[in-house]
Design a protein around this nucleic acid. Structure first.
Length: 210
DNA sequence: ACATTAAGTGATT
DNA sequence: AATCACTTAATGT
């Protein structure tokens, strides 16, 4: 049995279900920055995160991206639930935020388990709810917060999912994630640094205010 | 030493 | 807050 699986999901599922997940789930390791899923791709599997974090992005007609939320260990992607039922295509893009280990569960199995295991049912519904809440939070952030607040929140989130106050990124990358320009990011970052909330280095930012 | 990439700045809309 | 044009700084070859 996979150690990480036992560790992060052991308390959620009964032994029989864990056993099934362990034998059926396809173990995959993804390096940081690699893409797991793209917009328009059909969804065949559902990911169960074991280690690391994934960022979920939306894209507009022009190919500009916008970060929706992060997934961490113990999380799964809500989009798969709704999409795979009707054999729909993905509406989002998933990119490994850090090195990631995960188990891929075939859609058919996840449907089967819905009827077989109540713990699985709860997990799926609960996960769906959590994703929905996160989505609402990002909507709030976009609608009500100013750029400088959004920027700080983004850095804090990034620090959180990576479990490191040293965020490894460039101004350009942040700008892409937040759908703004690099110049704006640079200026706001400097402001945040003056306020003592962060410290800047090349390719790195230390988040002081967590 | 030179080229490339990241970050800083002032001006304009 | 976005864009342009340009400078400066850090890093790789």
């Amino acid at each position: 049995m996979n150690v990480e699986l036992q560790q992060h999901y052991g308390y959620l599922f009964e032994p029989e279900l864990l056993q099934e997940i362990d034998s059926i789930g396809v173990y995959r390791k993804i390096r940081q920055g690699e893409q797991l899923m793209d917009i328009g791709e059909p969804i065949t599997h559902m990911p169960l995160l074991l280690t690391g974090a994934i960022k979920i992005l939306r894209e507009d007609e022009k190919g500009d991206e916008l970060l929706l939320y992060f997934l961490e260990k113990g999380d799964s992607c809500a989009m798969t639930f709704s999409c795979c039922m009707g054999k729909k295509k993905s509406e989002i893009r998933a990119v490994a935020e850090s090195d990631v280990e995960l188990l891929m569960i075939p859609v058919e199995k996840m449907q089967l388990w819905m009827g077989q295991y109540t713990t699985w049912q709860h997990y799926i519904l609960d996960s769906y709810h959590t994703r929905m809440m996160e989505l609402l939070e990002t909507v709030d952030t976009l609608a009500f917060m100013k750029m400088d607040e959004r920027l700080l929140k983004h850095l804090q989130d990034k620090a959180k999912v990576n479990h490191d106050d040293m965020v490894q990124t460039t101004h350009q990358e942040i700008a892409l994630d937040m759908h703004t320009s690099r110049v704006v990011v640079s200026r706001l970052l400097k402001k945040l640094e003056n306020e003592g909330k962060i410290q800047m280095y090349r390719n790195q930012i230390r988040v002081v205010a967590l």
